[in-house]
Design a protein around this nucleic acid. Structure first.
Length: 296
DNA sequence: CTGGTCTCCTGATCGC
DNA sequence: TGCGATCAGGAGACCA
């Protein structure tokens, strides 16, 4: 499932295939995976069905038709496609959610393994598609660079370059388990369930530990180990747990390096203790009771 | 405002 | 072999 390293791998593989290309035409196969300027509030198809309001009709301008892709950047798990053209500087964000894929296909190339393509961007020499079986992800369109900036401002600092001082500031007033803080994108952008468990293990911090009870040294260590695990995962091309793949359809290899995620009941790679499991912040959480002792 | 819980969705896996 | 039950989880809605 895509977290920061997977999104970064998609970004890197995407750039050489889309930079400088014009979006010639956009085909929307499912309107409800898109949030456009002027849509009622609420994310993608996440509103309760009894209160779901009708989104506005999409127009070619909002869909960035005729714009040229200038860059692909990332903040946390948000993949930002920057364009410019007759509309000025605009942008869209692709969120992969649980099962989202962005892939670029050559002209005529079949979309192998992509059975839920919701949006297709036609480029001069091929096409980029957004596929998402579970539809936890989606596409956000922005009318201006300023609107994009405002959206990203709600997120915490990017986890790939998080420094101890930044993380201490972000956690300063948090009175909840550190695991919940790490998963909160407003605190730290980019960490999901896999890398939260891995970083806490590497930093020898129990996931249930209250953020407010961590010492400055604890938080510094956590920031350093978070960076480290994310960097290593990026180098491995991300973790392919189910069917994650980059923009060329290549799988990652970091799932082979997981020390706790998915290993509940197995021995700790450091001390041999049986790894514990529980549910924390609505997420399956795995930790070593000996290497990550609970403290008060 | 804060933190905790519910909800959306469907492919993969499991037990019988 | 088939089929229903269960699990996975990002993040906005909702609630105390």
């Amino acid at each position: 499932m895509p977290e920061l390293p997977e999104v970064e791998s998609v970004r890197r593989s995407l750039i050489p295939m889309v930079a400088g290309r014009e979006i010639v035409r956009v085909e929307v196969h499912r309107r409800d995976v898109i949030i456009a300027p002027g849509d009622p509030p609420g994310g993608f198809s996440r509103q309760r069905s009894d209160v779901r309001r009708k989104p506005k009709r999409l127009n070619a301008a909002d869909l960035l038709t005729g714009q040229t892709i200038r860059g692909v950047v990332r903040h946390g798990k948000q993949l930002v496609i920057q364009t410019d053209g007759h509309l000025g500087s605009r942008a869209m964000i692709i969120q992969l959610g649980m099962t989202g894929h962005v892939q670029v296909l050559c002209r005529g190339q079949k979309a192998d393994g992509l059975s839920h393509v919701h949006v297709t961007w036609r480029l001069p020499d091929g096409r980029m598609v957004f596929d998402d079986a579970r539809r936890f992800g989606g596409v956000r369109l922005f009318a201006s660079a300023a609107a994009l900036k405002e959206h990203l401002a709600a997120l915490g600092p990017d986890a790939l370059s998080i420094e101890g001082a930044e993380l201490r500031a972000a956690l300063a007033k948090a009175d909840r388990p550190i695991k919940a803080c790490l998963l909160d994108q407003a605190v730290l952008a980019g960490v999901g369930n896999i890398y939260a468990d891995e970083a806490l293990f590497l930093a020898n911090i129990a996931p249930a530990q209250r953020a407010s009870s961590l010492s400055p040294a604890d938080v510094d260590r956590l920031a350093a180990q978070t960076r480290r695990v994310l960097e290593d995962a990026v180098l491995a091309g991300g973790s392919s747990i189910r069917d994650y793949a980059d923009a060329q359809g290549n799988a990652g290899a970091y799932q082979l390096a997981h020390k706790v995620y998915g290993r509940a009941g197995e021995p700790c790679v450091i001390c041999g203790s049986v790894l514990s499991a529980g549910v924390m912040a609505q997420r399956t959480t795995v930790w070593c009771p000996r290497c990550q002792p609970a403290r008060t």
